[in-house]
Design a protein around this nucleic acid. Sequence first.
DNA 1: CCGTGGTAATTTTTT
DNA 2: ATTACCACGG
Length: 679
Amino acid sequence: MKLSHLNPPQREAVLTTDGPLLVLAGAGSGKTRVITHRIAHLLEKKVQARSILAVTFTNKAASEMKERVLQLAGQKALGVTLCTFHAFGAEVLREHLSKLGWPKKFAIVDTGDQLALIRRAMKDRKIDDRAFDARKVLTIISRAKNSGVDPQPKPEGQGDDYDLVAHLVFPLYQLALKAQGAVDFDDLLVFPSRLFTEFPKVKQAYAARFRYVMVDEYQDTNRAQLDLLVHLAGEHQNVCVVGDDDQCIYSWRGAEVRNILDFERHFPGGKEIRLEQNYRSTPVILDAANAVIEKNPERRAKRMWTDTLGGARIRSVCAPSEEEEARFVAQEIKKAIAEGFPPDEIAVLYRVNGLSRAVEENLRELGVYYEVIGGSEFFDRREVKDVIAYFRVIANPKDEISLLRIVNVPSRGIGDVTMERLTAWALKHEVPLWEGLTRASEIEELPQGAAEKVGEFVALVERYRKRFTKGKLAEVTRELLAEIDFAQVARANAPSIASGDRKVKAVSQVIESLEAYEKKEGPKASLLTYLNRLALDMKSEEDEPEHQRGRVTLMSLHGSKGLEWRVVFMMGLEEDLLPHSGMQGEPANPPEERRLCYVGMTRARERLVLTRSATRIKRGKELPRTPSRFLADLPEDLVDVLDLGAVPVGPPSAKELNFFDALRAKLKAGKDSEPPKPT
DNA sequence: CCGTGGTAATTTTTT
DNA sequence: ATTACCACGG
């Protein structure tokens, strides 16, 4: 590895291997490069690969970094542990969770399960689940867990009662998780810390193994992550964190910029290195991004600079409709590829994952290969969830949420009444619900017919549980689905042929993903590890397609942090979208939205295109949109503005007028007249 | 206990 | 616009 293509501060960061090190690195200053070179340098110094730990925030960033380290240091880099905080936590728990009273094999619940557990706990506490949004309750619980305290009610009738609800629900929620041998995402961070506190020997083993610890995107760590880091690096203090307070975009998840500002307090006697020279973007892009971020009140004074010159002007494009915005982006991508930009050097970024859809359609039409990162609409499909729930029940009978989900899917005559009775019985005897099912015939409250049907279901699950232990996961799944007639039932329930086809296809994609996992994992493949992996990285495993390289990337602004492309499109630069208006109740966070915009802009090396639409369809209604305030902050001389054509916004159309007239007439005439049919 | 038809609610970002 | 959930009849 050569150090010559690093600038002096970068080199210093790479060579400072021992003791605490804080690298304050602005966008494009070679942050990732410092980490990757540092790893390579350590390996060259004959540090064992297995002693090195590097953590990132997203799976995408982790895999990107893995690739770069591999290029730099070769095969021996394979031994380096390079993963997300959560994946690291899961690894620790896989070894030691039983010490905290959990079963050895545990499941990781997803957000849907979390909400189901919250709702059930609310019911147990006699809290109306319509008066309180389970999502909000979960947010409060999650925030509390991540900051290391139990949810507490507000002192004196301050604010709403959500804190009280969370306080009441939390113990039940945590108990329910334990009862089904599961942990949630937050536990993946919190439990290792607790483990390290309660079992110093375990901690020492990890601290001794991981002599060199590196953290990327340190500005986005929350309390739980900081605790974990302090535990890991407390002994040897060889901890290197890299971050930029201007790129803190996860405060909704409890990220504390303070962590980066207080680094010296947590790891005394360390060194601080600042990287302010930007090597990534043209001065045009950099100046524009700086103009946006400078409007933020609370930030450490810092200005990224570059010694390169020129660069194409930024384009700010307004389309009349979201459809045309997407078409424009797709066409421009095609043009850029024709100009010679490789597809994998082009990205489309947006604030909400929903914006990818229209672009996807247009790219497909134009025959451009693309890859959508994040936004797991696929796993939200009902059929997919059902199949996964089958896996969960088979892998872990104590998973009651999944059990309740599939016990009657497809309909097999086990209805709510039966399940109510079984649940009551299990509760009375203090056994898991599954045990109630296995002993259905002994339960007097259950009619014989119901007990028989339950017995058949139990037999089905147990038969397949045995079969799934013998490998051939995908094959056994196919047989299971055939046995329960999954495809046929899905088709029968579908409103149209096409929709039925989609359902069946989605299910076969699950099997393909399982098959790919099996192939990759070899003989140690198991349903539970497949499920836990799925939970940590909600993208389906794919067989690497031939054109794996050379695909345009579509992802959210959050996902793009730490990555870069020669050409970047940012979509939806509109008020309420970027900056996003917070969910009702939760206030929006304008400074963070601004940072998000800054992060997106600074992903671009050569070309940046900002698009918006004058209208957008929301809840079936077309609404006019106002341009994002961030567009107004761009220096005029750096931007070319393009309007793709105004849309007539004005008085309602004749058609609409007719409709309302008819409606009025109808109301006057009474109920007997025909309702008008607008088209 | 199952299917149907009507009504209500739906929209952040990641692990 | 689409989907989830409820009340009701078979």
